[in-house]
Design a binder for these strands. Structure first.
Length: 229
DNA sequence: TAGGCCATCTGGTCCT
DNA sequence: AGGACCAGATGGCCTA
């Protein structure tokens, strides 16, 4: 994990916000004259108009209270984003070794010409992980299909080795980096087109109509769970 | 210098 | 009411 490559994190302690001129001073560690926050509102909007629109009459907040509330909200949001980044880094840890492996000459393709070891961007990490998951699922389906073939054919063929295995029909993915193409084709294939299924899709099997998972229909007989927001 | 990527602030909305 | 989540805006850093 190459957190240090992050310029913002590099600049200072990641637990600290950036200090910029002209907004609410969020933490006392900002040097004098440098405040956190919006570059848009030198006089920050602390009135929380949304809350004020409420039909309920609300207690007027003093400027200090408004500032404190805004600080709390900002701090929570920072924490939330930092947690998200921690999770993203954990995902990178899994994907990066493959994405930057020498075997994938285009592994840094999301950043053409980028030096090796450059960390995956968020979008690259997510797309790479998605494709890898989809292909693992595809491999699993193929494996099950072949195992079925073996169990059927074991009484017919003399050898225990499945014919398709010997024929090289095994759709194994040795590493996620195989899913990294050139930047353009990588993103296009990942975001706009379904993965080319080695068995179900390519053989004309119907794709899930949900438009999100695009898995072969047989891969989940029960409706995909709907996760609460 | 333009474009990509990023962190942060902010206001709005939804949920508990 | 407070927190989580989201999207828009903004500016900094880096690379081609």
């Amino acid at each position: 994990m190459n957190v240090l490559s992050n310029p913002v994190i590099q600049a200072q302690d990641p637990s600290l916000p950036l200090c910029v001129p002209g907004s609410v001073q969020d933490l006392p560690r900002c040097p004098p004259g440098f405040n956190l926050g919006s570059r848009l509102n030198p006089a920050p909007m602390l009135g929380l108009q949304g809350a004020q629109r409420s039909t309920k009459p609300q207690r007027e907040l003093s400027p200090e209270e408004q500032q404190e509330l805004r600080r709390k909200i900002n701090s929570r949001e920072r924490k939330r984003m930092q947690d998200l980044n921690i999770a993203m880094d954990a995902l990178r840890e899994v994907m990066v070794p493959y994405a930057s492996s020498p075997s994938s000459s285009s592994s840094q393709s999301h950043q053409p010409g980028a030096p090796p070891g450059r960390r995956l961007s968020k979008i690259s990490t997510l797309v790479l992980a998605r494709n890898y998951i989809l292909l693992l699922g595809s491999s699993l389906q193929e494996m099950r299909r072949l195992l079925g073939e073996v169990s059927v054919g074991v009484g017919v063929n003399s050898g225990p080795v499945p014919r398709l295995l010997l024929a090289g029909g095994w759709p194994l993915i040795s590493s996620p980096s195989q899913l990294l193409l050139t930047q353009e084709s990588f993103l296009r294939s990942a975001l706009l087109a379904p993965v080319q299924w080695s068995s179900a899709g390519a053989s004309g099997g119907p794709l899930c109509p949900c438009g999100v998972c695009r898995l072969p229909r047989f891969s989940h007989s029960t409706p995909a769970p709907r996760f609460p927001k």
